[in-house]
Design a protein around this nucleic acid. Structure first.
Length: 354
DNA sequence: AATGCGTGGGT
DNA sequence: TACCCAAGCAT
């Protein structure tokens, strides 16, 4: 790339961003901790979804110390509904590390900041450039889409190896006077102008610098191979009440899907030759009597589909309740972090006809 | 490198 | 409906 072209791209992008950027909560600060929180929330998550979570989170945990001291259940409750819950635990782990070993100051170089849990190549570059003004690449899906078009890069962006091409391109192009506006500008452009479908090229500040637009192939880029289809599990869930009116809740394992979140006892079917009651007795050490249907729905994860059927049930006899299970009051259950499918069951149960 | 990890919105 | 997509990271 020649210097004049790069200067043109830089100035067009940065001035467009400074002029047209959306007014977002995390753009009112350069506090590295708050930028960090916002970047983690924004991983694979839409801006409109993140805004209310960010506001509540920063109000509750305004400093690294406050987050470091939080209890995990309380933290997950703040994250409830946002998804990818390991982000929350990794964020707290990283923040604790900063409080304990960096005097509560977020590191300002890529080598150190990348050691922190939950901070990968993108998030490292985002915090460094936005909070500290360090000229580092922050390559996300937006940046790959925008640059694949502007620079006519036809590599498959689904391949991890391809990202290096874009990181090098950014380090070559980046505005060293204002790396924050440059990086955010690329992402903003991808979010509002250079969209996956129907890009608004006629409104684009980089239109005259864009090879894809020049050749009329913006709709063909980026190249991305398709992901494989997800599998479907049939899941039957029971909301069990005992004689005191308490309801049985189970804490999920500390690793894997929905780690450490709470759910109602559930079984995955089909399991040959056994009823839900029998499986519940085996898995939870209790005898129950199944009641009426609460609701049924499909819950789609990124890699898995749950076909849900939930039922009311009453406790007949309790034998050996596993440690992961607890009888809780309605008020206590409302305080437990639960994934969205369980919230749908819980809300339907509370509103049921009695 | 390939897979697991949530959720909601768009077409 | 059934995809696809969104400011990725850990393993």
């Amino acid at each position: 790339m020649n210097e004049l072209y790069k200067k043109n791209v830089r100035e067009s992008l940065v001035s467009w961003f400074l002029e047209e950027k959306r007014d977002l909560p995390w753009r009112k600060t350069t506090d590295p901790y708050k930028i960090w929180v916002s970047e983690v929330m924004l991983q694979q998550t839409k801006v409109d979804t993140v805004i209310p979570y960010y506001e509540r989170f920063i109000a509750k945990y305004p400093s690294p110390q406050s987050l470091a001291n939080a209890e995990e259940g309380e933290l997950l409750k703040e994250w409830e509904g946002l998804g990818y819950y390991s982000r929350a635990r990794n964020l707290q782990s990283g923040v604790k590390e900063v409080v304990e070993h960096y005097n509560s100051v977020v590191p300002s170089n890529r080598k150190e900041i990348s050691k922190l849990k939950g901070i990968g190549p993108y998030t490292a570059g985002a915090i460094l450039s936005i909070a500290y003004g360090v000229p580092e690449h922050a390559v996300d899906g937006n940046v790959m889409r925008v640059l694949s078009r502007v620079l006519l890069i036809k590599e498959d962006i689904a391949k991890p190896k391809t990202k290096k091409i874009f990181e090098e391109a950014v380090m070559d192009l980046i505005d060293r006077e204002n790396p924050s506006a440059f990086n955010q500008g690329l992402m903003e452009l991808g979010a509002v102008i250079c969209t996956p479908t129907k890009p608004k090229c006629l409104l684009c500040p980089l239109r005259e610098n864009c090879s894809a637009f020049f050749e009329g192939v913006q709709d063909e880029l980026p190249i991305k191979t398709i992901q494989k289809k997800s599998k479907t599990h049939k899941v039957k869930t029971v909301v069990i009440q005992n004689k005191d009116g308490h309801v049985l809740l189970e804490k999920r394992a500390s690793k894997g899907l929905l780690a450490n979140m709470w759910q109602f006892p559930m079984v995955e079917l089909p399991t040959p030759n056994h009823t839900v009651e029998e499986i519940v007795e085996h898995d939870y050490g209790i005898e129950i009597e199944k009641g009426p249907l609460i609701n049924e729905f499909k819950h789609v994860f990124s890699h898995l589909v749950w076909e849900m059927e939930s039922f009311e049930a009453i406790l007949k006899q309790e034998k050996e309740l596993p440690n992961r299970c607890k009888w809780l009051t309605i008020e206590e259950i409302n305080l437990q972090p639960m994934p969205v499918p369980m919230l749908k069951i819980w809300n339907a149960w509370k509103e049921r006809e009695i």
